[in-house]
């Protein structure tokens, strides 16, 4: 554990709390992509199957359980409690374009041909693109509530912090995980456009609006 990873994980936790806070206080999941949230549940469940087979640390176990539980809770909020505020007509990204290639990539790039490793690899690739339905929705509507942009910024910061973590681990432990690094760089790259608008508009007190 190093500070980059620790603050990355904290940022990930923060993003989830911001999202739950947004949905429950506004009593609405407007502007949130159900597809992206459903992909995160898939990511966490497929990756954290090792909860039953390997123990890393109490921290690791507690975080894994939290990520699975909170992502399922968010789906519940969107699908059951605040269902009328969820508008599927603007959440139109085709999931098969994401899931299909991730299955293929996992079959090619993995650390072992067994169900756990294949699912782990699949989850890494899927996580790297899971935000796309959300960003696509943002692009379509051209604007977002400020709280939603804070959620995305915290999620993007989590990914960005994992990059110095890998650099640090390379020098301190000789540890390199090429699958995580490649997928992580792609994932962080997807946030660059968003971050540009976030820094130049939202943090200057303006509304998040994309140029027409």
């Amino acid at each position: 554990m190093n500070i980059f990873r620790f603050f990355g994980d904290l940022s990930h936790l923060a993003s989830i709390f911001i999202l739950i806070h947004k949905i429950t206080t506004t009593r609405s999941c407007r502007g949130i992509s159900f597809k992206t949230q459903a992909l995160y549940v898939t990511v966490f469940v497929t990756r954290y199957l090792d909860l039953f087979t390997s123990y890393v640390s109490l921290y690791n176990t507690v975080m894994k359980i939290f990520f699975i539980a909170s992502s399922c809770y968010i789906l519940y909020l969107m699908r059951v409690r605040y269902r009328p505020t969820n508008d599927p007509s603007i959440d139109t990204f085709r999931l098969e374009y994401l899931v299909g290639p991730c299955v293929v990539l996992a079959l090619i790039f993995n650390y072992g041909y067994n169900p756990t490793e294949l699912l782990w690899s699949f989850s890494i690739f899927l996580e790297s693109v899971a935000i796309l339905p959300q960003l696509f929705m943002l692009q379509r509507t051209g604007e977002a509530e400020t709280i939603t942009t804070h959620y995305l910024a915290a999620l993007g910061a989590y990914r960005a912090l994992y990059i110095p973590n890998w650099i640090y681990r390379y020098f301190s432990e000789g540890y390199v995980d090429p699958i995580s690094v490649t997928a992580g760089l792609v994932q962080t790259g997807l946030y660059l456009d968003f971050f540009y608008v976030y820094f130049t508009k939202v943090l200057q007190g303006q509304k998040f609006e994309l140029p027409a």
Partner: peptide, 10 residues
């Protein structure tokens, strides 16, 4: 040297 198939990251 650590083995990347020991997944200790979240």
């Amino acid at each position: 040297e650590s083995d990347p198939s020991v997944h200790d990251e979240l």
